[in-house]
Design a protein around this nucleic acid. Structure first.
Lengths: 157, 157
DNA sequence: TATTGTTATACTCTATAACTATA
DNA sequence: TATAGTTATAGAGTATAACAATA
């Protein structure tokens, strides 16, 4: 695999560390970009305030008031049990309400609380700042290209 | 925010669910692509076998035998305590060895075991299959473009 | 029989703070 | 004083399996 020669002959920070095959792999760059974006999200939005995943849940509930947990999970690619934990947290923070579904007595109809709607309004402004930060350095057409290529990767499997 | 009309007037799977503003956000597409790539990795490599993050650790240790945990963390953007947990798992599975550093008695020199090297060899072959799967549908130049754009997003902050 | 939500359980990743042993 | 690794702790995200209520 490797040549077998240790490059770590010193603990100095200046020691060059090789990434091996990683820079050739799309998966690696995806993860690094994801980490950078997540960190910027936390800086702009406030790390303890909300995660990107929770923001996405609020957006989808706002756009589809009354949808069920199963519908939400299918839309965002989350398991049912994951949705339960997710909504539990947002309900404890009084951003989301579980109401009785008028169509199916097994299901919950999800809605944003007034507090949740106000929070989402503030979040959307912050998210726009966040998006500008992570795409600064990319032209408008490069942003479009990147999003389209990512969407094709997400659909691929 | 939303018009306030519920779209979930039925629990039928055919109900159209809106993603709201999400399709306009780079962060959203990044997350969806990441999830798809992670799932394909698990399918090709075997979900319980190794995660993409653990694979990356093996690659970097192989490329830099004897490096310290701190160097590893800096290279892959992980906290020191995260590295401890990561190496604990790989050490329990006898893929990675913690040896005494000849330069610093506080530090551990990380090496792959013989078993770890053999496992990495097999993994690299599977990862090539995985990469072909997630980039199928993209031309060679599109793959290059995507990686370069992601690298710029990762460096941006 | 199948589906919705739930609980119990478990694992990975992540990080902060405080500790120890070294430097 | 500062650094390397560790521990304790915590929380998010993820998932599987089994269950009750309902369809």
């Amino acid at each position: 695999m490797s040549a077998g020669y240790s490059v770590a002959h010193s603990s100095r920070a200046s020691t060059r560390i090789s990434l091996g095959v990683l820079p050739d792999l799309l998966g690696y760059h995806l993860r690094r970009a994801q980490v950078a974006v997540f960190q910027n999200f936390a800086e702009v939005i406030g790390t303890s305030d909300l995660t990107p995943g929770q923001f996405g849940v609020l957006v989808v509930i706002d756009a589809n008031p009354g949808l069920s947990q199963t519908q939400l999970g299918n839309t965002l690619g989350m398991d049912r049990s994951t949705v339960v934990a997710m909504i539990d947290r947002l309900e404890h923070r009084e951003l989301v309400l579980r109401q009785a579904s008028p169509f199916d007595r097994r299901a919950h109809a999800l809605h944003l609380s007034a507090h949740g709607k106000a929070a989402l309004g503030r979040l959307l402004a912050s998210v726009r700042v966040h998006e500008r930060a992570i795409t600064r350095g990319l032209s408008a057409s490069e942003q479009t290209t990147l999003i389209q290529l990512l969407a094709r990767v997400a659909r691929a499997p």
